[in-house]
Amino acid sequence: MMSCAVAVRDLRVERGRRQVLHGVSFEVPRGSVLGLIGPSGCGKTTLMRAVVGVQTVAGGTVTVLGEPAGGPGLRTKVGYSTQSPAVYDDLTVTENLAYFAAVLGAPKTDVARVVAEVGLEDAAGQTARTLSGGQKSRASLAVALLGAPELLVLDEPTVGLDPVLRNELWGLFHRLAAGRGVTLMVSSHVMDEASRCDRLLLMREGEILADDSPGTLRDRTGAADLEAAFLRLIADREAVSDR
């Protein structure tokens, strides 16, 4: 299915002898922005790692851009930004980006482009160790934007950022999706970000509770906002499992 950027079927993952994903299935259409929402520890990072192909899986299939996740053909097509910033502390932002650009075979001009995209021009010459928390996580995000990825998997890319910067980054995400047809999977804890996604995957304890557009979710639950909608969905599920 080439219309589908990511297709996950019955994905099961065990971490530390405990099953943390219990048969998850969903699809992400190309060029859309999928939000991944759910309580801490519900398995968002695990799911993203499986899509990138760095997570050992116990069962099920994960197909990315028509190939099994993590396949050699995907390594320049999938950009991944981990939850905790993954950059070399003793290199400057520019040196970090130049190295990852070389590994990806991306043009050297990409370095300046991604620095501007995440708004780090003023800190580009600073070693990563000396960056503030938000600057460092933007440096890590910038690495994922190098080259021309067709799928971006971003694990809490806007955590610790102010509303202005968050707004700018979400503008960038939508420009990438609308302009270049990039598919994005973005996890978040912030509800106003969730409302900016085309589709939302609400997870709880390794299962998917809901997979809908933000509007549909609000209508279905009859809640005033997304936060209330999620609380209601989670409460409903708990009532079912208690019975």
Binding site: V54, Y80, A86, V87, F100, V103
Partner: peptide, 12 residues
Amino acid sequence: TGTLERLMASPL
């Protein structure tokens, strides 16, 4: 620090 995970998802 996670840079290895990043590299293992790259063509390296």
